[in-house]
Structures are given as C-alpha cells and as structure tokens.
Design a protein around this nucleic acid. Structure first.
Lengths: 129, 129
DNA sequence: CAGGATCCGCTTTGATACTG
DNA sequence: CAGTATCAAAGCGGATCCTG
C-alpha cells in the first residue's frame, strides 16, 4: 500500500516534484480559518474568558468594531469553532464558547503564543539601534 | 438593591477583565508573520524542498505570481524565517532554506497541517448535500 | 444588549511588461 | 534565471447609522 498523498512516488521526492496550492496544502486550510486580523485574537479571548458575552468581547478585544466582531464571530461559528447561545431575556444576552472542535485548536494556539513571544523578544533586542 | 453604578472597580477585579489586542497578544504576533495568502504555503514548501530555488517554487506553488513570490520571500527573509543564498553564476541561481528560527516554526506547521486535514474531512462529509 | 445594513478607503493580491 | 516596476482588481477592515 503505497498511496502517498504528498508525493506520487520516491522519484518525485528526489526530483522535488511537490505541488503546493491553497486547496491541497492542509496548512493553508488552517490559515483560512485562523486568518485575518481578529480571528486568532478572538479564539484566544473566548478560550480564556468563556462563556464570553458579546459586550465583554467588544470591550476586551481592543480596537475591534461591532460590525467586525459580529462578522468574525459568525464566520467562526460557521467554521464550527465556536458556539453561540442565545438567552431570550430582556436585555438580550448571547454567550460564546469554544466547541470541542474549536478546543482542538489549542495545541496550535499554545504553540503560536509561545513562538510569538520569542519572535517579539528577538525583535526587541534587534531594535536597539 | 445595591448601587453599583460607580462600583465597577471592585467587581472588575473579580470579573474576567482581560485585555486583548494586536500588540499584546502573542498569538497575533505569529499571525502577522504567517498571515496572508502565501506565507504558510511557502514556509511549508521551502521546508519540504529545501534548498528551494526561485523557479522551483514558482512552479510548485501553484497560482502564485512572480511578484508575489518575490515580495513574500523578501518578507519572510526580513522576519528571519528563511535565508537567501545567491550563487554568482550564469544563469543566476538563488536558493532558499529555512533558518534555525524558521525551523522553530515546525511544531506550529505540523499542528496546523494535522488540524487542517481534520477540518477538510469535516467539511467534505458536510458538503454531501 | 446585541446586533444588522451601508458605504468607503486602504491594503493585499494579481496581471503584465521589462531587465541584469 | 531571478528578479523589478507599474498598474488594475479584489477583499478586508473600518465608520456610521439603524433596530428588535
């Protein structure tokens, strides 16, 4: 059973006949979900403050506008990352939490957080000019 | 009925008062390096085919234009992710490889690749309509 | 409180032509 | 071969106003 989805055969590996594109590269798929200016921040915020209310997120995620917050939350919900729970109250209340699938992102988020710290450290000491 | 119109200070301490923004959230820092349509694909491509020549990348990374390839490679080099080695030959030859710092991204890349596969699987079975 | 609907500018990306 | 330069198109993000 030599059904290699990455390279057709051993010769391709030696000749480096790889094909990378947005539809086949699985890393790109993840980036499409996490991409954009706010998605990763929102996931992180909801992860740390769940259950997170809309107004809470608007205040804690500095700089985001209402419309952006709404649209990004909708997309994350659409992608199965977060779940939206509506309470029929006056005033209305909506709580966001990570789904199990969203929680499966935590290894990535943790690794990215750790790497991001190192990256910022690296650039701090470099900016001493 | 307590009067908490101005008593927010005490409560805020007990409440979840997190602040998330692009400059403090380390995850956002990583996203700034990996963000965009091509960066993650390029890192993956260079990781798997290093040393990768410019023309090789242009052919293997399907859909990218020369100008995009150049600019994205320059930014990755600027961020210390890849190194660019020029051979003074005719015709010219340039090889790209990941730096040690770029290699430190591999846990993230591997985690993202694995998650991306699951994500695509999830959506495949969902698209059976 | 938690949005929805519009409008708009800027950044990102793409297409094309040219060069050492 | 490995770029640069220029221009056009697209998409993302932002500001503002309105609503159940």
């Amino acid at each position: 059973m030599k059904n290699n989805t990455i390279a057709e055969n051993q010769q391709d590996i030696q000749e480096k006949k790889f094909i990378f594109d947005e539809n086949s590269c699985p890393v790109a798929a993840t980036m499409q979900v996490l991409g954009g200016k706010w998605k990763s921040i929102l996931i992180n915020a909801i992860y740390l403050t769940a259950p997170a209310r809309f107004g809470e997120l608007r205040r804690s995620v500095t700089g985001i506008t209402q419309s952006m917050l709404t649209s990004q939350l909708r997309e994350l919900e659409q992608d199965g990352i977060i779940s939206r729970k509506i309470y029929a109250e006056i005033p209305p209340r909506v709580e966001y939490t990570l789904t199990d699938f969203g929680l499966s992102l935590s290894p990535i988020m943790l690794a990215m957080a750790e790497w991001g710290k190192q990256y910022r450290l690296k650039n701090e000491t470099k900016d001493e000019s």
